[in-house]
């Protein structure tokens, strides 16, 4: 295995409110080795070269959800984006997640995103006195939670959703709705009808027009649109 170095070109969104009057795109290149398999590896090299380039990162294996950004126009995680997936010769364009206020460079203010997550009461509600041992749940009932509980709250989906761009304060967004359905689908949760009541709203739920941008960008391969569909289905079932 050779560690042949090659040069990679970037175009990066830069903005430091402490220094810059307004944001700009910076052209910058970095030498990487064949062991730098992922975009995040290259970005760490880039930061070693210019320590002012700012981005969040932590686990570098796609479970913490820190390094979500807009990569060549599509939201994704830098640590799961392979360097050899980029076309040769073209600069890699990195921008912050769209639709959220930028704090600095690729770091966005996620307050609004988490506010929506909190708004769906993302915790199990069960008012029976807790039994001494675990609450029982059949493997089939537990399977209902697959594809829901794995969300890493990276915000790739919600910030790819035009409905969330226009109404981030009123539309829960794909990530929040996925979480909402995670609790609706949980046989141990007793607040299903309250949760449905809360979501039956022209803004909170019905801003979703099933364009499926969320599904397209989810780095964990989850399907918020399907979860939203299931919420609607449950509302219909209880209404008719």
């Amino acid at each position: 295995m050779t560690n042949a170095a090659r040069t990679v070109h970037f175009k990066i969104y830069r903005y430091d409110p402490d220094q810059d009057a307004k944001p700009y795109m910076q052209d910058i290149s970095v030498e990487i080795e064949s062991t730098d398999r992922k975009l995040l590896d290259a970005m760490v090299k880039l930061k070693a070269q210019d320590d002012s380039i700012s981005f969040r990162r932590s686990c570098r294996e796609g479970v913490c959800g820190s390094d979500a950004m807009n990569i060549n126009g599509k939201n994704g995680l830098a640590c799961l984006t392979a360097m050899d997936s980029f076309p040769e010769g073209k600069p890699i364009v990195l921008r912050p997640l769209p639709g959220l206020p930028v704090i600095r460079d690729l770091i966005v203010d996620m307050t609004q995103f988490f506010k929506q997550y909190n708004s769906i009461k993302p915790y199990l509600i069960n008012n029976d006195p807790p039994p001494e041992r675990e609450r029982l749940q059949s493997p089939e009932d537990r399977e209902e939670l697959d594809g829901l509980y794995e969300c890493i709250l990276c915000a790739c989906c919600s910030t790819a959703c035009p409905s969330f761009w226009w109404n981030p304060d009123k539309f829960v967004g794909p990530a929040g709705l996925l979480a909402a359905y995670r609790f609706i689908a949980d046989t141990r949760d007793q607040a299903t009808s309250d949760r449905l009541d809360d979501l039956e709203d022209p803004y909170r739920l019905f801003r979703c027009h099933t364009i499926m941008n969320c599904v397209d960008v989810c780095p964990k391969g989850l399907n918020p649109t399907k979860a939203i569909g299931k919420i609607k289905e449950m509302m219909v079932r209880r209404a008719v």
Binding site: D201, P202, A239
Partner: peptide, 8 residues
């Protein structure tokens, strides 16, 4: 928020 319509 909370107009509670939309489903119909």
């Amino acid at each position: 928020v909370g107009a509670h319509y939309g489903l119909m």
